[in-house]
Write a protein that binds this DNA or RNA. Structure first.
Length: 916
DNA sequence: CAGTGAGCGAGCTTCCGCTTGACTT
């Protein structure tokens, strides 16, 4: 499938659909458009939609003005009227949609050739809705991109399948309701900007559940014997003389191994099992020292292994991770490049099917490289293992009707290695099975006290390598035996005497289940039918971005934040994070696609409830009060009176009010009782800076609620003798002598702050002098540096001024009224001229929340995509108009906040109470 | 998780699934 030049087909190939008219064909991907243009030739113009062209509005700014006041506008779904969706053309697609319209204006027929799956059908429908064609519209589908298949598809079109579109729309609406209703619950109860969704929340839950298993896990220790036996035949490269073997039984009782233990560290079924501890194992080894050993039995079984199916998205991500160390995202980026440049087929697929020409190419390549004896008589066919596979694409394979070897591509770096991986896997998939023999040798000996000890050794001889010549799959577990690796044993027979070269005790302990990696999590999701090939990489990205998981090497470790979020969802939205939720959804969508069910009753049940079960609306509305933020963010540390809490500033430990931070990168399963004590013992990362020579007190730097600061350590008022003393007395005493504190200046940092800096900070407030009988001091406050004179104050411009400002300067500053200092100091960033609507001049200013436009009356923040430098008069006027529409009266709302001032001040504190 | 005094434009965060290119330094 070499890329052809230009997007409009002009190659002189057969024109199957007849001469004359112009046909516009729209596919999803630009790369595909290029190829297909070449196959269709004259009379066809092939363009791409570049994925979906319309969607529900993402944020307020995208909601058309006439809907903004609707109660459901925030959702983009009219939940009051049959869940009717509101579609807008995505901002970044507007110009492209116009281009498609222009092309359509010159066409006589429109072919909607998007992928043949649920999403593809929907894209086709959206195209029809948005382009509003007045020319005939045909739906064209194909599963294979070859000239024959494409030409056949062009002359065998069908109608749009509106039921399939209905199913897609239902999926879309459900995901929106889930995501946009549940996320705000997290903002209120846990932390702003968090998110929940059908896929990401289950992915997070999987990672959290695995960590819980690890935390609940109790390791069991067990011992065995490892021996190396010598067959006394002399060794050659092909036939070793000695081989390793492990103790499996003593006097008929099987020796316990890792798999015999439960996750609680106890034996599953102790009868007939021998659990060796270190002492017993060493003693047995001693009693076997010098014993005679002989081969008790030799068991041979045929070994046969078939090649792996060609790559689909998830298997490619897994293997690229194991073998090339690429993340899911990196893999997809590299694959995208290979696809765009015509080296491989499409990389977001759940199909393992190869086209006939690809099968032929793979067989041909295998025969040329390894000989025809390596190629089976009949092509291999791979049925998809993925249950809800939509199979709109082929497997991922080298492009074209004959494959380029990696060397022939001229590729380099990651692109070369990924291509090579895909090429090998594809070629191997059409090769013969590997065959051989697996051998189990059992060796027995009698100890000095008459025990009969039996050892096992296993080997594998591959007599015909078949596909293994081309490709061996990697393993996630480095300890695991590679299934395909050859391991030879000496050619021994029953009764042969053996000499023990070495025999020693070996200790093991059971291991907790391994953490997920990106690749294994994606695999798990795919097996549970959650998520789609185009989203696997971004799901990982989302849960990383939200801080739900972090990476430790390649392992995905859940944060305590994830524990809190998952705990909330499990307790209050159990159905939504059920692992089968998506599977049930898919069943309903299939019903809808077949015409066996309607979407509205189903969505209504989901959103409004029924049959005695609460719907989503009630759960996020009336029942919201039942969610206790404190409880949801608290986890008792087993066996202690310590609580792990997730706060706004990260996780911390709480023991009767004593608090200490938990390092952000501490894995939850590493937070043991001992570790917690250790954290309490070295309080909160304080850094001792030295002693204040004036007071003899220690000065430390700490990180506090308001950022880094320095403080002094006061002597303990009393020895801890009076344990009965009421806290009140202590508070009183502490109130009498408060330690001096001071926030670090912006130029300082916690790591580098010196004693000298600290003493300077602790010297504040500085008395500047006296004005009109009032003492003037310079100090650092909540809003930065300022001067204080009685009840009056003025901000200072720089922190340095706190130490340098003179009395004369202070007089000057106090002579000016309060507000002006700030307001006049900020000149407009840009002047825009008159608002065409109101005639008042508009200027752009920099404010607390970033740049905004003001006409003196209304103010409106610039939105995403608006730039101070480039914003137009029209856009600014539009923003102001929007702002005016929202808050038309100026006085009433201005008064309210004023009256609420005390409440507003409490707001931050209130938030904290909610949380803590 | 330290503790101190203003007066000011609020507005937005978020879902899943399709698919790339557009900016500037």
């Amino acid at each position: 499938m070499p890329a052809k030049k230009g997007s409009a087909g002009s190659n002189g190939s057969n024109d199957t659909a007849g001469a004359g008219g112009n046909r516009l064909v729209i596919v999803e991907s630009p790369a595909k458009a290029k190829t297909i243009a070449g196959y269709l030739g004259r009379g066809y113009v092939v363009e791409s939609s570049i994925g979906h062209i319309r969607d529900l509005p993402t944020k307020a700014a995208e909601i058309p003005a006439r809907y903004k006041e609707e109660s459901w506008a925030r959702l983009g779904v009219n939940v009051d009227h049959d869940f009717e969706p509101l579609y807008v053309v995505n901002t970044d697609k507007k110009s492209h949609v116009k281009k498609l319209k222009d092309l359509m204006a010159q066409a006589d027929e429109l072919y909607l050739a998007t992928d043949e799956d649920r999403e593809g059908e929907a894209i086709a429908w959206h195209l029809r809705e948005e382009l509003k064609p007045k020319i005939p519209v045909k739906r064209m589908v194909f599963n294979e991109i070859t000239k024959d298949a494409i030409q056949h598809a062009a002359s065998n079109t069908r109608e749009l399948n509106l039921r399939l579109v209905d199913a897609q729309e239902t999926r879309r609406i459900l995901d929106r309701l889930y995501g946009y209703e549940v996320s705000p619950v997290l903002w209120k109860k846990v932390m702003p900007k968090l998110s929940a969704g059908r896929v990401q929340s289950v992915a997070t839950r999987l990672v959290v559940e695995r960590e819980r298993e690890r935390m609940a896990f109790t390791a069991a220790e067990y011992w065995g014997l490892k021996a190396v036996f010598d067959a006394l035949i002399g060794s050659s490269p092909d036939t070793p003389s000695s081989f390793p073997a492990a103790l499996v039984a003593v006097d008929g009782a099987r020796v316990a191994q890792g798999r015999d233990f439960t996750s609680d560290g106890v034996l599953r079924a102790p009868e007939g099992l021998l659990h060796l501890d270190e002492e017993a194992a060493r003693a047995l080894a001693a009693r076997l020292d010098g014993a005679d050993f002989a081969v008790q039995s030799v068991e041979r079984k045929p070994y046969r292994r078939s090649p792996y199916a060609p790559f689909r998205t998830t298997t490619l991500q897994q293997e690229a991770s194991r073998k090339l160390g690429l993340s899911a995202k990196q893999t997809m980026q590299v694959a995208q490049k290979l696809y765009e440049n015509g080296y491989i087929t499409y990389m977001r697929t759940d199909s393992t099917t190869l086209s006939a020409s690809a099968v032929a190419a793979a067989r041909d390549q295998a025969a040329r490289l390894y000989g025809s004896s390596y190629v089976p008589d009949k092509p291999r066919v791979y049925a998809s293992k993925v249950k809800n596979a939509q199979e709109a694409h082929e497997a991922i394979r080298p492009a074209g009707d004959s494959f380029r070897t990696p060397a022939e591509t001229g590729l380099r770096g990651a692109e070369f290695r990924l291509y090579e991986l895909i090429w090998k896997r594809t070629v191997a998939s059409q090769m013969k099975d590997a065959v051989g023999e697996s051998v189990t040798v059992r060796v027995a000996g009698v100890s000095s006290t008459g025990e009969r000890a039996e050892f096992n050794a296993t080997g594998k001889i591959i007599t015909f390598h078949g596909f293994l010549k081309a490709y061996v799959e990697g393993s996630d577990d480095p300890q695991a035996e590679l299934d395909d690796r050859e391991r030879r044993l000496p050619p021994v027979d029953e009764g042969d005497a053996l000499k023990a070269e070495s025999l020693e005790a070996e200790g093991h302990s059971t291991r907790p289940p391994a953490r997920y990696t990106e690749a294994s999590l994606v695999k798990e999701l795919e097996e549970r039918e959650i998520g789609r090939p185009s989203t696997y990489a971004s799901i990982i990205g989302t849960i990383l971005d939200r801080g739900y998981v972090f990476k430790k090497g390649s392992a995905l470790v859940p944060s305590f934040l994830a524990f809190a979020v998952v705990q909330l969802l499990e307790r209050h939205f159990g159905n939504l994070v059920d692992y089968d939720f998506t599977a049930h959804m898919e069943d309903r969508l299939d019903d809808i696609a077949r015409g066996d069910a309607e979407r509205v009753p189903w969505l209504r049940r989901f959103y409004y409830g029924g049959d005695g079960e609460a719907g989503l609306k009630e759960l996020v509305g009336d029942q919201l009060g039942e969610i206790d933020p404190k409880e949801i963010s608290s986890f008792p540390l087993p066996g202690t009176d310590i609580m792990v809490r997730v706060g706004r500033y990260g996780p911390y430990l709480d023991r009767e009010g004593q608090r200490v931070n938990v390092p952000e990168d501490l894995a939850p399963d590493e937070l043991t009782k001992d570790k917690a004590e250790e954290l309490f013992a070295q309080p909160s990362g304080d850094r001792e800076l030295g002693t204040d020579p004036a007071t003899g007190r220690a000065v430390v730097a700490k990180n506090g609620r308001f950022g880094p600061y320095v403080t002094e350590i006061l002597e303990e008022p009393e020895a801890p003798a009076a344990t009965d003393a009421k806290p009140k007395t202590r508070t009183k005493k502490a109130a009498a002598v408060k330690p001096r504190t001071g926030s670090l200046l912006k130029s300082m940092s916690l790591d580098t702050v010196t004693l000298e800096d600290a003493l300077k900070l602790l010297s504040l407030p500085r008395v500047v002098g006296e004005i009109d009988g009032d003492e003037v001091t310079a100090q650092n406050g909540r809003f930065g540096p300022y001067l204080k004179k009685g009840t009056d104050s003025r901000s200072l411009e720089t922190e340095e001024q706190m130490f340098t400002v003179t009395l004369d300067e202070a007089k000057e500053i106090f002579a000016k009224p309060k507000q002006r200092g700030r307001r006049a100091a900020a000149p407009p960033l840009r002047e825009l001229g008159e608002d065409p609507e109101t005639g008042s001049p508009m200027v752009i200013k920099e404010g607390r929340f970033g740049p905004y436009v003001t006409d003196g009356q209304s103010n409106a923040s610039l939105r995403k995509g608006d730039e101070v430098e480039s914003i137009t008069v029209e856009r600014a006027a539009e923003l102001l108009a929007e702002r005016r529409a929202k808050a038309p009266v100026k006085k009433a709302p201005a008064k309210k906040p004023a009256a609420k001032k005390p409440a507003a001040k409490k707001a931050p504190a209130k938030k904290t109470t909610k949380k803590t």
